[in-house]
């Protein structure tokens, strides 16, 4: 009996540090932040509770609204763009092409690089005076325009392009793995049926890639919500507030504007958006697992 108890004690001890991390850092810090968001803290935490005042202030802040709408524009274009480009690249590589490995390596390498690097490269490419635009115009293509980043209206699309460059490869890898897992006899059946290849991808393959598609879409969306470094490097939020994003808004109010209450309220809002996006996926997979367990 004594030995048994000793055995069951070591595993619990082994995961104790992680338990502490979860409770103190994850839960503790979250509760603290939540608490702060209901106070009128400025530079230092304050004990004066103001209810939802900070949230009201937040929703009244044009900068926050702009940051959220930028994030929505960026998020939709980035996630959809990555999915479409990634799927097309995967389908193309799936067609028994030569140099498949070389192509795959080239499509994915940007994913290995930091957002700062990505941002700086594209900032340089989109430099209106010395970058691609000037080069093309110098070559005689006078109307060529590629100075998205200096325009208040288009700068966010510049950020999207940089994001697509970095993120599409991830989708490509995941989709290609999914495609290679599909029964080859389906391809043969489709050939006997006379289904053109593009139609097979759209009507037969794509519907079967639901799970990896959902996984990679969640992954990309999480990345969108956390978007910070990319914007800092490529535009630093400008011009004006053209590429302001919530994560940057929070950082500014936290460390530069000494607006602790507002920053924490914004952080909680960001967290809520994650919950809203992830919860349905989680719930669906939970239900699916339950149903599976029920059937078995």
């Amino acid at each position: 009996m004594a030995r048994r108890q000793k055995k069951s004690f070591m595993p619990a001890l082994a995961i104790l540090p992680t338990w502490l991390t979860v409770v103190v850092v994850y839960i503790g810090a979250m509760v603290w932040t939540l608490n702060l968001s209901f106070t009128k803290s400025k530079l230092f935490p304050s004990g004066a509770y103001v209810g939802f005042d900070q949230y009201e202030r937040l929703l009244g802040s044009s900068k926050w609204i702009k940051a959220v709408s930028n994030l929505a524009t960026f998020g939709v274009l980035y996630v959809l763009g990555c999915l479409v480009i990634g799927f097309c690249l995967a389908a193309a590589l799936d067609r028994k092409v030569r140099f498949e490995n070389a192509f795959r390596t080239l499509f994915l390498y940007p994913y290995a690089m930091s957002f700062v690097v990505t941002g700086l490269v594209w900032q340089w490419l989109m430099n209106p005076v010395l970058g691609v635009q000037a080069t093309m115009q110098g070559l005689g293509w006078e109307s060529f325009s590629f100075d998205l980043l200096t325009s208040r209206d288009y700068a966010i699309y510049g950020v999207v392009i940089a994001g697509l460059w970095q993120g599409s490869g991830l989708v490509m890898v995941m989709m290609l793995a999914g495609m290679r897992g599909i029964d080859v006899e389906q391809w043969r059946a489709a050939r006997v049926d006379g289904i053109p290849a593009w139609r097979v991808y759209v009507s037969i393959i794509l519907p079967q890639l639901g799970p990896p598609l959902a996984a990679v879409a969640t992954l990309l969306t999480m990345g969108v919500i956390k978007t910070y470094d990319l914007v800092i490097a490529i535009t630093n939020g400008g011009p004006g507030t053209a590429t302001e994003v919530p994560a940057k808004f929070i950082m500014d109010n936290l460390f530069q504007r000494q607006n602790l209450g507002l920053a924490t309220a914004a952080a909680i809002m960001l967290l809520m958006s994650v919950v809203i996006i992830v919860a349905p996926f989680r719930y669906a997979s939970y239900i699916r697992a339950k149903r599976k367990a029920g059937v078995l």
């Binding site: 979860v22 850092v25 994850y26 503790g28 810090a29 979250m30 603290w32 932040t33 702060l36 999480m222 919500i225 956390k226 994560a247 929070i250 950082m251 936290l254 602790l260 920053a263 924490t264 914004a266 952080a267 909680i268 960001l270 967290l271 994650v274 992830v278």
Partner: peptide
């Protein structure tokens, strides 16, 4: 916890 944006944890 892995899904929570870092900004939530930073100040604490």
């Amino acid at each position: 916890g892995a899904l929570v944006p870092y900004q939530v944890f930073l100040y604490p």
